[in-house]
């Protein structure tokens, strides 16, 4: 009897230790991921001397918004030391945004059509096609850089956002198609059939029933495409050269080699670069998690 109790104590104790270890581990990983970002965020509120002080410290001495203001409202002094950062950040963000939204939109349109066909129709070469899509994900982008550069040059599209969007679509679409194919497959066919019987044409069925039902999948696909384009450095650095198409990662990387750029301005542009995807993530996360499909059928 006492032995049993002792054993159960032992088990509880083991569980507690396990829980504490897990929580500690989680906390460590969180710090590891968030620390650089916190540094960035805090630096963006510092004065330059503050940021350069030795030893470095985390908390700004006299927090200031001047770094943010100078991006939207450049002042005389800043024009000298941080001119490149200030000139290029906002156009860079705009370029990034256009490229990312463009990539997401093209992915959605083509991915929906292809994904639907692959999910619903059996045709010759379907399996091969899916295999090729999957295989293309195995190809590292760096292997294609030179032919890609030459191709785009031949089209006269260097330093053009269209070239960037086309490139990003090439690399994201196969995955999007797979994602949406799987999503459509999980939606029962009877839902479409019910819509057809209720009086829909095929197009009405897609727009009024299937796509709204697939909304979480569509959002996930769009986010994936958006983020891939937003984060890309490799292709952007090769294919762009001026503010006509330079994207944010290229602009930010440029600061590191620029002797006149202030640290605090770099940090601020970093924070600005994070805002759009962050906003999108918060906006759509709820929709994705909500699980719109539940309740359609008896499961």
């Amino acid at each position: 009897m006492t032995e049993v109790i002792a054993q159960s104590h032992m088990r509880h104790w083991r569980q507690d230790v396990r829980l504490i270890a897990l929580m500690l581990g989680g906390a460590l990983v969180t710090v590891y991921i968030l620390a650089p970002f916190c540094w960035l965020l805090l630096s963006s509120f510092m004065h330059e001397q503050d940021a350069l002080s030795v030893p470095p410290h985390w908390i700004p001495k006299n927090p200031t918004l001047s770094n943010y203001l100078s991006f939207f409202n450049p002042s005389e002094t800043r024009a000298v030391v941080g001119s490149r950062a200030i000139e290029q950040t906002l156009p860079g963000m705009l370029n990034s945004f256009i490229a990312a939204v463009g990539t997401a939109v093209v992915n959605l349109v083509l991915g929906t059509l292809a994904g639907y066909s692959l999910a619903r129709f059996k045709f010759r070469g379907r399996g091969a096609l899916l295999g090729i899509y999957l295989g293309s994900r195995m190809l590292p982008g760096i292997a294609l850089i030179v032919p890609l550069y030459l191709t785009i040059k031949a089209f006269g599209l260097l330093d053009h956002l269209v070239a960037l969007i086309a490139t990003y679509v090439t690399f994201t679409l196969p995955f999007t198609i797979w994602l949406l194919k799987n999503y459509f497959q999980a939606i029962p066919r009877s839902l479409e059939e019910a819509a057809l019987i209720d009086g829909c044409t095929w197009l009405q069925m897609m727009v009024k029933v299937l796509l709204p039902t697939a909304l979480p999948g569509l959002i996930a696909a769009a986010m994936f495409a958006f983020m891939t384009a937003w984060n890309d450095y490799l292709f952007a650095v090769i294919l762009t050269s001026t503010t006509a198409s330079k994207t944010m990662p290229v602009v930010v990387a440029g600061f590191a080699t620029d002797v006149t750029t202030e640290r605090t301005l770099m940090a601020t542009s970093g924070v600005l670069a994070i805002i759009p995807p962050l906003v999108l993530a918060f906006l759509f996360q709820r929709l994705i998690v909500q699980g719109l499909t539940s309740g359609a059928v008896k499961d």
Binding site: L191, A195, T201, P212, T213, V297
Partner: peptide, 16 residues
């Protein structure tokens, strides 16, 4: 859509 029929499916197929 032109047959003027209504169908009840085994899995209900309600628009979620």
């Amino acid at each position: 859509k032109d047959r003027d029929i209504a169908m009840v499916f085994q899995n209900y197929a309600l628009y979620p």
